[in-house]
Design a protein around this nucleic acid. Structure first.
Lengths: 106, 106
DNA sequence: CCGTATCCCACGAGATACTG
DNA sequence: CAGTATCTCGTGGGATACGG
């Protein structure tokens, strides 16, 4: 399905899947937290307040969508870091606009 | 839960519920369609391609969220129009940013 | 430390049929 | 025309427990 925006035709599927993922519980929190920099699973959890299971699911979806990458370090104790891709960082303006909207219409 | 944005503290609940609704299937299509102007249920359906049931549910949620109003006319045949509130129209910049993102990262 | 497994429940979507 | 009713199925969340 294609919509016409005024200047370009836009792919509704792409937008819906992005909005769908963003609308999942916790996605916004994860995104906001990781915009500050890479975090470990536990550190992330402190900031998001998500259950391990939920955060794990969300991270997997975000990895599948190419928003997050996982970096595992061969250390003891084991260390894992999650960081955003450029694609995900490029969503920041979207968040800014939502936040601006929320400020006004909360 | 509150996050600090740099300049203002933002209410995560509000943002998540907005993103949650936006992420529901069809919400984006409904919003985009109604930004052009008020539409009847059937006209809207032609543009969104949603099942009656789904569109009906979505419209109810959007009404509950104060995004859409319903106007019923005492005519024969019956006529109903849906239109966006200012609150919903104010979401357009969000859509614009998502669309800009989708153009680049599709 | 970083998750996965399991159980249970609730909601959401698709399809089809039907009504004020 | 503008929806609702019903059924069926799959997915997602909460909680708790456990494994590499």
């Amino acid at each position: 399905m294609l919509l016409y925006n005024g200047t370009v035709s836009i792919d509704v599927q792409t937008i819906e899947s992005a909005l769908g993922l963003l609308g999942q519980q916790g996605s916004y929190r994860i995104l906001r937290a990781l915009l500050e920099g890479p975090l470990r699973f536990g550190e992330l959890q402190e900031r998001t307040g998500l259950l391990p299971r939920t955060q794990s699911l969300r991270l997997k979806e975000m990895m599948a969508a190419g928003w997050v990458t996982r970096h595992q370090f061969a250390e003891v104790p084991p260390r894992v870091e999650y960081r955003l891709t450029d694609k995900a960082r490029a969503l920041e303006p979207v968040l800014v606009e939502v936040e601006r909207w929320a400020e006004r219409y909360a």
